[in-house]
Design a protein around this nucleic acid. Structure first.
Length: 497
RNA sequence: GGCGCAUUCGUCUAGCGGCCUAGGACGCGUCCCUCUCAAGGACGAGAUCAUGGGUUCGAAUCCCAUAUGCGCUACCA
């Protein structure tokens, strides 16, 4: 796209550079990850660079260990970064708390050039000011009391030992307009923009300053971020200009909502991508799903591979409307991806869940594979496999004997039927799917029973369940000995009815 | 309250003036397949394109109001 040479960006590096800039204040939220995904896709589509930058400028909200979770979430989804924590890069450090002097310098320059000023107002004054404004139905905001302090007044405040903050001196008139890659042209009256704080009294920058300074320093070409920042974009633009920087392009992404149309949060279910992993979701499914929250390829495609996503992603097809996170569709999509897995891959991914559920009862890897191949197309979540395969690993069946009795059958007729079946099975040399079918089907005919009546009873006898994979396949995997024992148990159970 | 933005089936969306008696997907229902459950296939219900005015030969698509929703309105990001 833009290939004009501009200040701060050399022709050599004038390519697409996007970034994801999370603050380490919690888990990797799917909303944030969706934002990261779009920035990542845009960079990859344009053979650009994707940068990961940590915005840890809020000391109070910073949560120990959360950075590692965020990185883990990114890695799990397969979003690799070209620069940032763990990989380095030419524009580091990529952690804002290690770049404080840059922001402090910028703030000082801004004050010196008259674009910003020191503010000595206390948090208390600001607080009472705000509550008073709200009470009188006035728009809340800073009243610019310190905007025009004289040198003497400032000296007096300094003498009191007050550490000031730096606020941007927003022009009182005029308007700021910009072109958003997704929203189009947006215009704001400058008089509605506040003199926001750029540098806090603890020496840390606010998001507004740190963002501008770093996006410029890191030569970010496209700022792709959530919709909530659109209102502060005019301030950012003014800051770029005041600092003498050429601003990047902006693209604001629509929000991700919960089912009640409020911002997606914990009460809407899982919101951390790591939680989705624990619940048995496949990263490729989540990635596909997330890509479709606010973006579409065309009027009919739902299942899109990572490569296709990269190949086809464009900002033009990003929607402007907030989207509700549809867990049902994600689950369906996960099922689609599970079915697409090779049996080996499916087994590999399920193994941890099986091992966890049946630590003492795993005879062999081959057995587990055989079992899993029977349930693959029946599972929507990896976590379901333990439930789906329980009777393959445990001999305690615990079912109600009544479940053995099919329609139009009695306990006694069912018992007789199972006795016959057991005799035939004992005599049958092979125990594979084919030979099982070759004796069980004729048996049903011989007894003048519907296949469902015989097979249903055997199914329950052998598994304790009424819904299982196909009977013969299941029995073949369970093995002759186990099946015969279970059928005998069923026969005994029926006798007590 | 102010500012900004949005508004197509329950949900995700296609649509960028005539191809729309609005298409696809999830979910839902019926049927087929079938030893059960899935998967798969077929069909169906489901949107007066938020409402009201314009513009136009013609509007879901353009314009203006209204309503509703969302975002911002922090020494949080």
């Amino acid at each position: 796209m833009a290939s004009t040479c501009r200040a701060g960006r050399s022709p050599l590096t004038d390519s697409v550079r996007t970034r994801f800039a999370p603050s380490p204040t919690g888990f990797p939220h799917v909303g944030g990850m969706r934002t990261a995904l779009f920035a990542w896709l845009f960079a990859r589509h344009n053979q650009g660079s994707f940068i990961l930058r940590i915005e840890d400028t809020d000391v109070e909200r910073s949560v120990e260990g959360s950075l590692e979770y965020i990185l883990e979430g990114m890695r799990w989804l397969g979003m690799d970064w070209d620069e940032g924590p763990g990989v380095g890069g030419d524009y580091g450090p990529y952690v804002q708390s290690q770049r404080l002097h840059l922001y402090q310098d910028a703030a000082r320059r801004l004050v010196e050039s008259g674009h910003a000023y020191y503010c000595y107002c206390s948090a208390e004054r600001l607080e009472t000011l705000r509550t008073e404004q709200i009470k009188r139905k006035m728009p809340p905001g800073y009243d610019r009391r310190c905007r025009n302090l004289t040198t003497e007044q400032r000296k007096a405040k300094e003498a009191e030992g007050i550490t000031p903050v730096v606020r941007f001196k927003i022009p009182l008139t005029g308007r700021t307009r910009f072109h958003d890659e997704i929203w189009g042209d947006v215009v704001f009256e400058n008089s509605h923009v506040e003199d926001l704080v750029l540098l806090k009294s603890d020496g840390y920058p606010t998001y507004h300053l740190a963002n501008v300074v770093d996006d410029h320093a890191m030569e970010i070409s496209h700022v792709i971020r959530a919709e909530e920042y659109i209102s502060s974009t005019p301030l950012h633009l003014m800051t770029y200009e005041a600092l003498g920087y050429v601003p990047p392009k902006f693209a604001h992404l629509p929000m991700v909502l919960g089912h009640d149309r409020s911002k997606l949060s914990k009460r809407h279910g899982a919101t951390s991508v790591l939680e989705f992993r624990e619940q048995g979701y496949l990263p490729e499914a989540l990635l596909n799903f997330l890509a479709l929250v606010g973006w579409s390829l065309d009027d009919k495609t739902d299942i899109i591979s990572r490569d296709e996503l990269i190949k086809n992603f464009s900002l033009e097809r990003v929607s402007k409307t907030a989207a509700i996170f549809n867990h049902e569709k994600l689950k369906w999509m996960n099922g689609v991806y599970i079915r697409k897995l090779t049996p080996e891959d499916f087994a590999r991914r399920c193994f941890p869940f099986i091992e966890k559920a049946f630590p003492e009862n795993i005879p062999s890897v081959d057995y587990v594979r055989a079992v899993l191949s029977l349930v693959q197309e029946r599972t929507k979540l990896l976590t379901e496999v333990s439930e789906l395969t329980r009777y393959f690993f445990s001999d305690r069946l615990n079912y109600d004997a009544k479940l053995l009795i099919s329609k139009d059958m009695t306990p006694e007729s069912t018992r007789q039927m199972l006795i016959m079946a057991k005799e035939r099975l004992e005599k049958q040399p092979g125990f594979d799917e084919k030979s099982l079918e070759s004796i069980l089907r004729p048996l049903a005919e011989e007894l003048k029973l519907k296949t469902g009546q015989l097979f249903g009873a055997l199914r329950t006898a052998v598994s304790g369940e009424t819904a299982t994979p196909p009977l013969f396949q299941m029995m073949a995997v369970l093995g002759r000995e186990r099946c015969l024992i279970r059928i005998q148990e069923a026969i005994s159970k029926l006798a007590t009815l």
